[in-house]
């Protein structure tokens, strides 16, 4: 039954993607992208990646829909027809996809216990973290009860700090853009009523 649900979700995902490609009404495309986000979130839950699923719904279906609609308010909602033939892009995509699929043949088999990724540092992290049956508590190195938090906040702390810095810088940039446009509107220039959705507050 689970595989039936998986296949149905994947099929709907493919239908959505083709709808996004086919439709010329961009509002409909934005709505379909919201549906796409919901479907991929459901698939992430099936794959046990619950945190990724949550991010997908909050960002993909929530914020990006609003941002895309804000963009459409500025640029109009009809897509222009392309004059060029789509054959060469299709060829490039097919060749790239084929090469990627070919590349997967060199990967180690999925889920094997003696894959390289399981023999590197993961056992140490787990051993540091989970108290073994004999020892009582003293083996803990980090003292954080959750293994994911341990890896993110301690073993990969600098990595996480870098990510947070990048996100912070991006947010400051976006807020600067919004504040600039608002001030410009107040002090002069053409009175633009429904321009520039202020999507951040």
């Amino acid at each position: 039954m689970e595989s039936v649900v998986d296949l149905a979700l994947l099929g709907l995902l493919a239908v959505t993607a083709f709808g996004v490609l086919h439709l010329r009404n961009l509002v409909a495309v934005v709505m379909l992208m919201g549906i796409y986000s919901f479907l991929s979130a459901a698939l992430f839950v099936v794959l046990d990646a619950v945190d990724v699923a949550f991010t997908e719904v909050a960002v993909g279906a929530g914020v990006s829909t609003i941002l895309a609609l804000g963009t459409l308010a500025l640029v109009g909602t009809r897509q222009k027809r392309h004059a060029k033939s789509p054959l060469i892009p299709l060829l490039i995509v097919l060749v790239t996809g084929g090469m990627l699929v070919y590349g997967t043949y060199d990967l180690p088999r999925w889920g094997e216990p003696d894959n390289p990724v399981h023999g590197h540092v993961a056992p140490e992290y787990l051993a540091d973290h989970v108290p073994l049956a004999g020892d009582e508590g003293d083996v803990l190195e980090v003292h954080i009860p959750n293994i994911v938090t341990t890896v993110l906040a301690s073993y990969r702390g600098y990595d996480t700090l870098g990510e947070t810095t990048v996100v912070f810088a991006a947010m400051v940039g976006v807020l600067t853009l919004f504040v600039g446009s608002r001030r410009q509107r107040r002090t002069g220039g053409p009175p633009a009523d429904d321009e520039g959705g202020s999507g951040a507050s």
Binding site: G34, A61, G62, T65, I66, L69, G70, A73, D193, D194, E195, G196, G197, S198, G199
Partner: peptide, 15 residues
């Protein structure tokens, strides 16, 4: 919340 935001958007043209 998303639906409210989208509908508000369609009514007012911005958020």
């Amino acid at each position: 919340i998303g639906t409210i935001a989208v509908l508000k958007f369609f009514q007012f043209g911005s958020l």
